[in-house]
Amino acid sequence: MAKGVKPRVKVPKKAAAGEAITIKTLISHKMESGQRKDDDGNVIPRSIINRFTCDFNGENVIDVTLEPAISTNPYLEFEATVPEAGEFKFTWYDDDGSVYEESKQIAIG
């Protein structure tokens, strides 16, 4: 299991109905590509976040496939339209089967 994995999300606390807001996400993860070798010449096994999703009140906002070329601590920024108050749910899927979750409430105002 990858060590020191910690998800972070930045979502505004409130938005106007129908407004497009910017969401920033970052997960600390070493994103080992599987292409590198250690000092003894053995391949270091691949260990990456391979999928990221964001849902708003159960509806999918974005679904990203991540590949080994993506750097350490992947940072994803995207926009989402907020039709109503609710909850953004963020999920990261690790190669080792771990799933990291985070959620943020947003109000209309």
């Binding site: 972070r8 920033k24 970052l26 601590n73």
Partner: peptide, 12 residues
Amino acid sequence: DFDNPGMIFVEQ
């Protein structure tokens, strides 16, 4: 702070 990559190390 969210954009500053140095803050990851601060959290560690």
